[in-house]
């Protein structure tokens, strides 16, 4: 029995080419310029930042005009990640938060740093810390992380509809 082959390793390698799509393209170009550019749904008029896959899922509609939203935002909810996993590029523990940028209707995921994880809370006001301009790529990773602004917390009602 001990000589039986019970397991084999057969590595799989396939190359894929992903497309951002024309609607996400203007958002990525905005990031190359230090701006947060989202898109408005032509049906329900809500602002998606980032514009996800180019659609408003609620309406089943292709997103329309560009809308630049504010640099600051509010933490709507978050979690403290304390588990290692393959491909992880950030040191644990860290806070992964949903941030509702001022003027956007959908939160986006990003990191919270420069604050103790235990002090992060729902409603906390935050601002981005951009990497040096010469390192910018068409990616949200141009923002290293968000950090507290020190403003008073946003009241729950102001973001309750965006959880």
């Amino acid at each position: 029995m001990s000589d039986d082959v019970l397991r084999i390793r057969t590595p799989i390698s396939i190359k894929y080419q992903y497309s951002a799509g024309p609607r996400v393209s203007s958002h990525l170009l905005g990031l190359m310029d230090g701006r947060f550019v989202g898109k408005r749904c032509p049906v329900c008029e809500l602002v998606y930042m980032p514009p996800r896959n180019g659609t408003c899922a609620k309406c089943g509609a292709l997103l329309g005009e560009d809308v630049e939203v504010g640099q600051r935002g509010t933490i709507t909810t978050f979690c403290v990640v304390n588990v290692p996993f393959l491909g992880q590029t950030i040191k644990i523990p860290y806070v992964s938060a949903t941030i509702l940028l001022d003027g956007a209707d959908m939160g986006m995921q990003h990191l919270i740093q420069e604050v103790d994880a235990a002090d992060v809370r729902m409603g906390m006001r935050v601002e981005p810390v951009w990497r040096p301009r010469e390192e910018w790529q068409p990616s949200l990773e141009n923002v290293m992380h968000f950090r507290p602004t020190g403003e008073p917390d946003a009241p729950f009602d102001s973001y309750a509809g965006h959880l």
Binding site: S19, A20, G21, P22, N53, G54, T55, G60, A61, L62
Partner: peptide, 10 residues
């Protein structure tokens, strides 16, 4: 195509 799959669907 350069569209996302969902952009092709709509």
């Amino acid at each position: 195509t350069t569209s996302t799959p969902v952009e092709m669907l709509i």
